[in-house]
C-alpha cells in the first residue's frame, strides 16, 4: 500500500473546474467536497486526501510539505514566489493579470497603483522603469480609481464585465493566468510514481488553449 497523497485544493472559483478535470481524468472525487465544512477529506479508495484551502495559501502548504501537491492559479504562484515544482498547466480558470485605469488616465506626478498583488505590481512597474507607489487592498480593487485612492490598479481580468460596468479599461496585459499543478520538493521525489501517474492522467484531459 503506497502512502496517501495529500492534495491541497483551492476553495471557490477554481475548485469546480479542477474537480471536473479530475473526474474527466477518471479520478472519482466527491462532488460536494467544496460545500462541506470539513477541511480535510480523505478518499481512501483513491489513496488520496484533499485539503480544502484558501487559494492563496495553497503554495504555502505545498512548500512546507503538509500537502504533497496542490492546485493554484498562476497569479498566486507569481505573487507568493514559493519554492515548489510547477508541474503542469491545467489550462483551466483562464484569465489574465492586467493594468487597469479610467479611460482618461494620464501619468500624474505621484502615481499610485492599488492591487491585491503588491509583489507582481511592483516588479512589473520596476521592469517598465516606472516609479509608482503600490497600495495593497484585499478586495473590490475596482473601487480605488473610482474614488481616487489610486489612479491605476493591477488585477485579474476574466471577462472584463466588472470593468465595463464600472467604466474602467484594460491598459496593458501583464501575463496570462491558468491553474497549475504544483508539488513539494521532497514529495516529488518520495512519491514520484504517484505524482507522475496523476500528472499523466490529467495531461490527457487538459483543455488545449485557443489563444496562446
Amino acid at each position: 500500500m503506497a502512502d496517501t497523497l495529500k492534495i491541497a485544493m483551492p476553495k471557490g472559483r477554481i475548485y469546480k473546474k479542477a474537480s471536473a478535470l479530475f473526474r474527466e481524468a477518471g479520478l472519482d472525487i466527491p462532488v460536494d467536497m467544496d460545500e462541506t465544512r470539513k477541511l480535510v477529506i480523505p478518499v481512501q479508495e483513491m489513496g488520496m486526501e484533499f485539503i480544502m484551502a484558501k487559494p492563496v495559501d495553497v503554495p504555502t502548504y505545498v512548500e512546507y510539505g503538509v500537502a504533497d501537491i496542490g492546485i493554484v492559479g498562476k497569479d498566486v504562484l507569481m505573487e507568493e514566489n514559493r519554492d515548489v515544482y510547477e508541474l503542469l498547466d491545467l489550462g483551466i480558470a483562464r484569465c489574465r493579470m492586467s493594468v487597469i485605469a479610467l479611460p482618461d488616465w494620464k501619468p500624474g506626478i505621484q502615481q499610485r497603483v492599488a492591487t491585491k498583488y503588491p509583489n507582481i505590481a511592483s516588479q512589473y512597474f520596476r521592469e517598465q522603469g516606472q516609479q509608482v507607489e503600490v497600495i495593497k487592498l484585499n478586495g473590490s480593487i475596482e473601487l480605488a480609481p473610482l474614488i481616487g485612492l489610486a489612479d491605476r490598479i493591477v488585477d485579474m481580468v476574466e471577462t472584463g464585465q466588472t470593468l465595463k460596468e464600472n467604466g474602467l479599461v484594460e491598459m496593458e496585459s501583464i501575463f496570462n493566468i491558468t491553474s497549475r499543478l504544483i508539488a513539494n520538493r521532497v514529495s516529488y521525489r518520495m512519491k514520484n510514481t504517484q505524482i507522475q501517474s496523476l500528472c499523466d492522467r490529467l495531461q490527457e484531459v487538459i483543455p488545449t488553449s485557443e489563444v496562446k
Binding site: V66, R185, V186, M190
Partner: peptide, 11 residues
C-alpha cells in the same frame, strides 16, 4: 545530489 526524508518537506 540531494537527500530527502519521508517525514520532512525540505531536503
Amino acid at each position: 545530489f540531494e537527500g530527502y526524508a519521508a517525514e520532512l518537506g525540505f531536503p
